[in-house]
Structures are given as C-alpha cells and as structure tokens.
C-alpha cells in the first residue's frame, strides 16, 4: 500500500506576484530614459504612467525637498511613455549604444 507520509507531493504551476516575474526586461531597451533632475518638479506623473512600473520617488534623496525620481533600469523597457507624458519635458530618450561605449571605456 502506498503510504501518505512519504516525500511525494502533488505539484501544480503556481506563481506569485514578484518583482520582475517576466525576467530582466531592461534587456529589451534600445533607448534609455534620462531625467534632468534640475528641471524635474517631482510631480510623479512619469511614475503614474509607467506601465511596468519602474519609476518611483525616493523621498530620502537630498537633491530636492520631495526627494528624487528613480528609474529602475533592470526592468525599464525603454517605451518612452514617461518622456512623452512629462509636463516639463525633462526626460530624454538616449540611445543605449552611447552607454555601451561609455561602459566599455570604464572597463579599461
């Protein structure tokens, strides 16, 4: 007779909400959003529109009384919605290749 107290367990596919469940979607990006902190008013509209959502306000940052907008580049797909919606037009979409060259030089 099969015992019920051995190691066997019924398995199903269950996934729980977790950060980056779809993998490092930052790899999809060809343009990187860069926020101009001097112009940014920290209105958080970019964070509201980000479909991922990977823009958050870090309230502890000393650069501004409200803190600072932070983009999580590991997951940002570079869709550009934030740049499009920013009322101050202070988010620039910069080609990823430009950073590649920089990072390569840093390596040396």
């Amino acid at each position: 007779m099969t015992k019920s107290n051995d190691d066997f367990k019924v398995e199903t596919w269950n996934s729980k909400p977790t950060k980056g469940a779809a993998g490092k979607t930052g790899l999809w990006r060809t343009f990187r959003p860069i926020i101009d902190d001097d112009v940014c008013t920290r209105c958080e509209i970019c964070a509201l529109y980000c479909p991922e959502p990977c823009i958050t306000l870090n309230p502890d940052d000393p650069s501004h009384e409200k803190g600072r907008m932070v983009i999580e580049y590991e997951y940002c797909k570079g869709c550009g919605i934030c740049a499009n919606e920013c009322p101050k037009h202070c988010i620039e979409m910069v080609k990823e290749t430009e950073f590649l060259v920089e990072e390569e030089e840093e390596d040396k």
Binding site: L27, R29, T30, K95, E96, T97, L100
Partner: peptide, 9 residues
C-alpha cells in the same frame, strides 16, 4: 544585428 544587445547573450 543590434549593437545594444548584452555580450552575455
């Protein structure tokens, strides 16, 4: 084909 693809891939 794409210069921005990470080398690890």
């Amino acid at each position: 084909l794409d210069p921005a693809l990470p080398k690890i891939l």
